[in-house]
Design a protein around this nucleic acid. Structure first.
Length: 478
RNA sequence: CGAGGUGUAGCUCAGUUUGGUAGAGUGCUUGGUUUGGGACCAAGAUGCCGCAGGUUCGAACCCUGUCACCUCGACCA
């Protein structure tokens, strides 16, 4: 194991310093680099490839549900941003402004979009006239700017890439269903493709999106017990429509306000993947989004037939998988470590001994479990390994989350839990913002979400002792 | 925005206490030998010591300012 120590020399171990482990790993795996603008990051090819795979999967899901992609402008006139009061109040502190064009001062300054609700609303106000124009189901892939004071790779940056869906509907019910439909789309994506167990819920008024009537969220626990908001879906009611004067003639020939939703997932989820599955040897990427799913490493390349066989396997596998053959001059040991660090799910070794037996070696990234796969049944073996790989990624993350899940009945419980390592904290809550603030101020935990299954609850608020209205998941947030 | 820390070769860092003109490991280039868990030999290239002022005969080192990054808070989609 002496050589393993050499590998991790440059990477701090998770147990020693999780935050440092994280930044070491994103740089070492060449996912991103810092740029010249404070808080802005460069997505390097390997990191961007992960995002592209996420895009492909989500885009397909969205289109399958009837959404169309559009591209809104980057700039928003100040007057437009001002229209919805809660919205501007929420975003004003962190918007960047364009004030000049060349040397001339602009008559009205333009903000770089922090999110595009206002642009969509303005557009809808001109396009929606009749109930026959509804619904409109739009999405855009873009980047937005929020001038955050601190930044961390993927988790928080001044500019970040995301998708934002914006829809507009005839009825409240239809819009609410859309909100839930996209909420569930995100949840399924996290659990099925990213192998990340998540908690689904609704944000408290304190934590919900600026301008939304309700915000639904998926929350995931990271290795260090902190909680990452991983995707949100908002129901706007008719608030924005009223602010932007979006009206249409309804089926009864009366003027009516439509109802809106928006929903988004960002490159932040890449940080979530890293902090959910990664280990001290580097990244561990779920196969569905891994830029390289299988790395082929020829052993004793100079022996006759080895490289030829490796290329033959490569050519077959590339039809179905994202596969790479590393025929560089590095030693096998070096390659093993390199691709482990990069999180490649399966390593395929092929050497003289294997060729004799008509097989190759498959090694799983997560537990280094080896299996011998006959070359004439390779595709099937790989499929099986991927299935098992994904199952154990999910199971491992779930076990970890459950082992750090805590229950608080009183404030003393909260105090005790917060003094040691913990993940989600479940407790009853009266619904008053004051109790939320007390926990935030005294113990730095915030409400992550209100359980969706809290209709029939009974009990007392863990903070004030009054009758509880909700079951809430709390935690230290990223 | 508050507290603390770090900026020296592509990367990880030593050198700063006590000022004298640039170092190690790794990586990189070339050639050769190697290859089942980070191989070896030989020859090479690589620096405005974050940036700007100041002190000094002389500054990576001392002083002032500034910028960036990291950590913990505060703030926050």
């Amino acid at each position: 194991m002496g050589k393993q120590e050499k590998l991790v020399k440059d990477i701090t171990s998770m147990e020693e310093d999780f935050a440092k482990w994280y930044t070491d790993i994103v740089k070492k795996a060449q996912l991103m680099d810092y740029s010249n603008v404070r808080g802005c990051m460069i997505l390097e090819p390997y990191g961007f490839a992960i995002w592209e795979n996420i895009q492909k999967i989500l885009d397909k899901k969205f289109k399958g549900l009837g959404h169309e992609n559009v591209a809104m402008p980057l700039l928003i006139p100040e007057s437009l941003l001002q229209k919805e009061k809660d919205h501007i109040e929420g975003f004003a502190p962190e918007v960047a402004w364009v004030t000049h064009a060349g040397s001339e001062k602009l008559q009205e300054r333009l903000c770089i979009r922090p999110t595009s609700e206002t642009l969509f609303c303005e557009y809808f106000s001109r396009k929606v006239h009749s109930w026959r124009d509804l619904p409109k189901l739009y999405n855009q892939w873009c980047s937005v700017v929020r001038w955050e004071k601190t930044s961390r790779p993927f988790l928080r940056s001044v500019e970040f890439h995301w998708q934002e869906g914006h829809t507009i509907h005839e009825t409240q019910e239809e819009a609410q269903n859309e909100t839930m439909r996209m909420f569930n789309t995100y949840a399924d994506f996290c659990e099925n493709e990213l192998c990340m167990p998540i908690i689904k819920g609704r944000k408290t008024d304190k934590e919900k999106f600026a301008g939304a009537e309700s915000t639904y969220t998926i929350e995931a626990m990271m290795h260090d017990g902190k909680i990452l908001q991983s995707g949100t879906s908002h129901y706007f009611g008719d608030g924005f429509c009223k602010a932007f004067d979006i009206t249409y003639q309804d089926r009864d020939n009366k003027p009516s306000y439509p109802y809106e939703t928006s929903w988004g997932m960002s490159t932040r989820i890449i940080g979530g993947i890293i902090m959910t599955h990664g280990d001290n040897n580097g990244l561990v990427l779920p196969p569905d989004i891994a830029p390289i799913q299988i790395i082929i490493i020829p052993i004793s390349m100079n022996k006759p037939g080895v490289l030829e066989k490796a290329k033959e396997i490569y050519n077959i596998l590339k039809e179905k998988y994202r596969v790479k053959l590393d025929e560089s001059n590095q030693t096998p040991g070096w390659k093993f470590s390199e691709y482990e660090m990069k999180g490649v799910p399966i390593r395929l070794e092929i050497g003289p001994k294997d060729i004799e037996k008509g097989q190759c070696v498959l090694v799983r990234r997560d537990n280094r479990e080896k299996s011998f796969a006959p070359l004439d049944n390779l595709d099937n073996e790989i499929k099986q390994v991927f299935i098992k790989f994904k199952e154990s990624l999910y199971e491992k993350a779930l076990n970890q989350r459950n082992s750090l899940m805590r229950e608080a009945k009183t404030k003393d419980d909260f105090r005790k839990i917060c003094s040691e390592k913990h993940g989600f904290i479940r407790s009853m809550w009266c619904g008053k913002e004051k109790c939320e603030e007390i926990l935030k101020e005294e113990l730095s935990v915030s409400s992550r979400c209100i359980s969706l299954l809290d209709d029939k609850i009974s009990g007392k608020c863990a903070v004030c002792g009054e009758d509880a209205k909700h079951l809430v998941y709390w935690g230290k947030a990223y």
